[in-house]
Write a protein that binds this DNA or RNA. Structure first.
Length: 426
RNA sequence: GCGAGCGUAGCGUAGUGGUUAGCGCGUCUGGAUGUGGCCCAGAAGAUCGAGGGUUCGAUCCCCUCCGUUCGCCCCA
């Protein structure tokens, strides 16, 4: 270990070689959101802890087990943002966006923090692309946000994805369903796994999602929410499916898809790599949350949106061997040697940059050989040589680093313009 | 939070209960004193993840911790 310090568990440095992925994704996000009429918003890295306790649900894993909370010097209870939706809803209310033309379409990319056991594709700090549409109850919008993600992934060269879709009805009818579900499982409580016994009390919908052997016998006979939706939710669900079909987005209904946040109603979805056994491979997921803004103290305002993890998007891109050509770190490399050459080299590099040409100067005092190696590694097209001889004559040598390395001379006063012209000419 | 695997220079790796822990890539320097990419040579770079224990002696055995990977939970 090179240092006694290392990046905190579950965090990572994004090194220069990985930056092209981030830049490409950022660029694609800008373009795709523009196609759908979204506007960017940025919210703070931390918020009042209560926003998530109230909004996300204080019995959800994200809030109960994974939230980074702290009390600041003024005694405020704050939390590093664990998920984006409540923060954007808070901003919607705070800035009176209800008086904007509805619906309001917002997106952001920002760091999210969850205190969880790290694995590949699961980090304590990860970056999420988030889209939210506030003020529309239209089922078409549910399909539309899925299409945003679908379009983005396609642009980035990710293939082999599928949408898992479900409807978990509205709050009231869901309550009735949960009662039926509990009634179904109650007689078998003792036969269930410990996890599922806990779920029976805390989050019964999760029972259907159990992977434990002991729970399997009961899953089949359990009532499925999606099969007995309220009329309104069923109609909504049908429109979502129709729209997805119309858009040519393949999906499967997954009656077991529940998602871990309390505020969802009706549509929930995840986008997953089809042939991936990994537990944490979901690259995007979201749903409708008509009850969230009222929960935060706002007026009845429907909403739908999603989050998608940039780190996981990159893993998928790498799986499909999406790569980026190495970009040269400079165009012109100024090699210099001898008494006072550093002044001329520095001045020349400045002239080049003023002309819009990336330029670097070799390390003072290093051998020409070493400086030329640096020029080679930099990917520069031209090396300019300022040695004792050249300076004495007021000249600079221009060496073409491509091909045979042919050299010509030009006056110091005009060499920058000369090289600029040659670069423009190709 | 639970279970399991892994942890040797920047990266990839070899190796052994006991003299200076090897190799490749990369980095730096040089190849008669002003020139890159190939080649050659040399150098730097590792308290063998950290701490403790067993032992005459541990990188190699045991424990704890840290990190990472896989599964569970959950999620992006």
């Amino acid at each position: 270990m090179a240092s006694r310090y290392q990046a905190p568990r579950g965090t990572q440095d994004i090194l220069p070689e990985m930056q092209p992925y981030w830049a490409a994704i950022q660029q694609a996000i800008v373009e795709v959101t523009a196609l759908f009429g979204f506007r960017r918003i940025d919210t703070p890295v931390f918020e009042a802890a209560g926003l998530f306790e109230k909004g996300s649900g204080d019995t959800t894993d994200i809030v109960e087990k994974e939230m980074y909370t702290f009390r600041d010097r003024g005694g405020e209870d704050l939390a590093l943002t664990p998920e984006g939706t409540p923060a954007i809803c808070r901003a919607y209310l705070e800035h009176g966006m209800a008086s904007w033309p509805q619906p309001v379409r917002l997106y952001t990319t920002k760091a999210m923090f969850r205190y969880d056991r790290p694995q590949k594709g699961r980090y304590r700090q990860h970056t999420q692309f988030d889209c939210e549409v506030l003020g529309s109850a239209d089922a078409l919008v549910d399909a539309e946000v899925m299409e945003v993600l679908w379009t983005l992934y396609a642009r980035l060269g990710i293939r082999g994805l599928g949408v898992r879709l479900n409807s978990i009805d509205d709050i009231e009818p869901r309550r009735a369903y949960i009662d039926r579900l509990k009634a179904y499982y109650a007689p078998h409580r003792e036969e269930l796994s410990e996890d599922s016994q806990r779920r029976l009390d805390r989050n019964p919908l999760r029972l259907l999602d159990s992977k434990d052997e002991r729970d399997q016998p009961f899953k089949e006979g359990a009532p499925k929410l999606v099969d007995q939706l309220s009329d309104a939710a069923a109609a909504h669900h049908q429109v979502v499916m129709d729209a997805l079909n119309a858009a040519g987005i393949p999906f499967v209904i997954d009656p077991l898809l529940v998602r871990g946040l309390d505020y969802y109603n009706r549509t929930v979805f995840e986008i997953v790599p089809l042939e991936d056994e990994r537990a944490q491979s979901t690259i995007g997921g979201g749903g409708r949350y008509d009850g969230l803004i009222p929960l935060l103290g706002g007026p009845a305002t429907p909403g739908v949106g999603f989050g998608s993890g940039i780190e996981r998007i990159i893993l998928e891109m790498q799986k499909y061997e999406v790569t980026f050509p190495e970009t040269p770190s400079t165009r012109v490399y100024v090699v210099h040697r001898g008494e006072g050459s550093h002044r001329a080299a520095f001045k020349l590099a400045g002239e080049l940059r003023a002309a819009g040409i990336p330029a670097m100067v070799g390390e003072t005092g290093r051998s020409l050989k070493s400086q030329f190696r640096g020029a080679d590694h930099s990917g520069a097209r031209y090396a300019l040589i300022l040695g004792e001889d050249e300076l004495a004559r007021g000249m600079a040598v221009v060496k073409d680093l491509r091909g045979g390395g042919e050299q010509t001379e030009a006056p110091l006063a005009t060499v920058a313009a000369d090289v600029a012209a040659r670069l423009r000419g190709g």
